[in-house]
Amino acid sequence: MKRSLEQRLQDGPVICGEGYLFELERRGYLQAGSFVPEVALDNPQALKQTYRDYMLAGSDVVLAFTYNAHREKMRIIGKEDLLEPLNRQAIRLAKEVAQEHPEEEALVAGNISNTNLFNPDDPEAVKSVRNMFAEMVGWCKEEGVDFINGETYYYYEEAKIALEEIQKHDLPAVITFGMMGENVLRDGYTVEEACRLLQEQGALVVGMNCFRGPATMQPYIEKIRAEVDGYVGALPIPYRTSEEHPTFFNLPDGGCSCNLPTETTFPTALDPLYCNRYELAEWAKASHDIGVNFLGLCCGASPSMLREVAETVGRTTVNSTYSPNMEKHFLFGTDKSLQPHITSYKTKA
């Protein structure tokens, strides 16, 4: 029997795999820059396989890939006519994959995200944002999602509108903020204050995602956990952000001597700046220990990274059978059947 999101949260931490945006760009099915998920229509099998890889790596959720699939983004690329077909297709593909889970059918989440249009001083922009969320949530409801993931908001007021539109359709809401280098939201709220307000207004899970790596997100996750009585979510990017460079937008690579298209490593030259899986495991343990309930990774994450997070908080995933085991490695292994004249060479390799 398929448990709801709230039931799973009550039973223990929920793992949510994100990061499709960068992963599908790496796989060659999405354009960096516009970052619009046309892959749902152009290459549905590629999207299904990506969904599947994250689910088998431990995600309890198949998140419909509609990040940036809102009317404003589709207007910019001149494809508003594809807006509804893209949204519905992404959800339907997610539902197909969720049903494949060999142990318990995965949850399917609809997705609404930052619009890059919101302006608290422009009533028409605020109205447009509400209308965009309303139509996307409506399609999610009609397609039968289990909950809505509203993410990467850097205005509290925009997140509040998202929550209100989700609640009109009686769907559970996960709302997470993407905080830029100002260390407060763009409309002046602290992230912990914003999370508390949204939880009081009925969001099931509140927290942070994207923009920041574990090092620069975790201090704020601790503040949110201290401020919020309910469920808290944390989904950092897997990059080594720092106090000097708290987000991945201006993260430097001191070892790179080539000319970069945007004069910054973001978004296509971040590769040398990854956290390794063991750093991510340390973050996952620290978050789990303070009571974070909804754990995952965002842009840049791979399935193997997500599996490390899931295993660190006590989960055995479908693909844990492929987790590292060095016992039989030709050079570093300890199995007695290995050739000793080769294993003894490891100090000189």
Rank of each mutant, 00 (worst) to 15 (best):
Y274D: 11
C275P: 04
N276F: 03
N276Y: 08
R277E: 14
R277K: 11
Y278N: 07
E279N: 01
L280H: 02
L280E: 01
A281K: 14
E282P: 03
E282R: 14
E282G: 01
W283G: 02
W283D: 00
A284E: 06
A284Y: 06
A286E: 13
S287Q: 14
H288Q: 10
H288L: 00
H288G: 12
D289T: 02
D289Y: 01
I290R: 06
I290Q: 01
G291V: 04
V292P: 06
V292I: 11
L297G: 15
C299F: 15
G300Y: 13
S302F: 11
P303W: 12
P303D: 14
P303H: 11
M305R: 08
L306N: 03
T312K: 02
T312A: 05
V313A: 01
R315G: 11
T316D: 08
T316V: 15
V318F: 09
S320F: 05
S320D: 04
T321D: 14
Y322A: 11
S323D: 00
P324Y: 13
K328T: 08
K328R: 15
K328V: 03
K328C: 07
F330D: 05
F330V: 11
G333Y: 02
G333L: 09
T334N: 09
K336D: 10
S337V: 07
S337A: 15
